[in-house]
């Protein structure tokens, strides 16, 4: 009986209830911000310029949209991230599969990764700029590099943990090396690769912002620096929020692709109990 009661209680904390709290929290956050800014504008607890209200940020957005430059910044950043992230991911997956398949290559790669891995990618940006000039290339290479290491690590791990029984059964079904690679090794490592991509996505965005802050003439990171130079606080808040929005969109997109690819994959904590 007690078990049934417990299940009933679990059932009530369904997705619908969670969503409700979520919106209340978000609305409260903006409301509190708005009130704080309004209060401060009157009583001057600190310099009101430091904290523009949400409506001021929205107004700044509308003004920038009006001049047409905001689109340019948004698209520039999205495009850079897409190219850099895809480049880093593709190279990491290819290298990761090669390394994961060969013990020799792994013993060569592992110490190299131990050597380079602990250096935060951001420490290398000035070097990248000297190597690749000040144009678009160092930024893309830098974002790709930030993406590369986590995806590589997760890919190697995924390839190494393929169930050997599946490889045996594929061989006995007549599959060639190439078919085993595509239909078994890659398929089996793919969930792992996506975990790596998720981890990397956050890093790529950081890399994007840093790269745009140093020597760019467009992009949301540039917008932040440019606004700072003219002390336009509302624009800085706007650009930061838009970076958050872009990250959310990319993350959702990744989630969509995952849900598509891994329909076969049921498991983990969420599937342990029927709710």
């Amino acid at each position: 009986m007690q078990d049934v009661a417990q299940l009933g209680r679990l059932r009530r904390v369904g997705p619908a209830a969670v969503d409700y709290t979520r919106w209340v929290t978000i609305a409260t956050f903006f409301l509190a911000w708005q009130l704080l800014a309004a209060y401060n504008a009157v009583h001057q607890v600190f310099n009101p310029v430091f904290l523009p209200s949400p409506t001021m940020v929205l107004r700044a957005g509308r003004d920038l949209l009006g001049t047409g430059v905001l689109y340019l910044h948004i698209l520039q950043s999205a495009w850079r991230l897409l190219i850099g992230f895809s480049l880093g991911t593709s190279v990491a997956v290819v290298v990761g599969i090669l390394v994961g398949r060969s013990r020799r290559l792994e013993s060569i790669a592992a110490p190299l990764l131990d050597l380079v891995g602990p250096i935060p990618p951001f420490a290398l940006l000035p070097i990248f700029i000297i190597w690749f000039g000040v144009g678009e290339l160092p930024k893309l290479v830098f974002i790709a590099y930030a993406t590369f290491l986590p995806v590589l690590a997760y890919t190697v791990d995924g390839v190494k943990s393929v169930n050997p029984l599946l490889i045996r059964s594929a061989y006995s079904l007549g599959a060639s090396e190439m078919q085993i690679f595509r239909r078994v090794v890659l398929k089996s490592a793919l969930p792992n690769i996506f975990v790596g991509m998720r981890v990397s996505l956050a890093l790529s965005f950081s890399a994007l912002v840093v790269a745009e802050m140093i020597g760019a003439d467009a992009g949301l990171g540039y917008l932040i620096i440019d606004s700072r130079n003219f002390f336009r606080m509302a624009n800085m808040f706007l650009a930061a929020s838009l970076i958050g929005v872009e990250y959310t969109l990319f993350s959702l997109l990744l989630g969509r692709v995952e849900a598509r690819l891994f329909r076969w994959r049921k498991g983990g904590y969420a599937h342990a109990l029927e709710r």
């Binding site: 029984l165 045996r168 059964s169 006995s172 079904l173 007549g174 078994v184 076969w264 994959r265």
Partner: peptide, 21 residues
């Protein structure tokens, strides 16, 4: 000389490809 399609194998652990129907 090695595994081949002339010898089909059925495993105790089934060894089905989980990503295929």
């Amino acid at each position: 000389e090695g595994p081949g399609a002339d010898r089909g194998v059925v495993f105790q652990e089934y060894a089905l490809f989980p990503w295929y129907t």
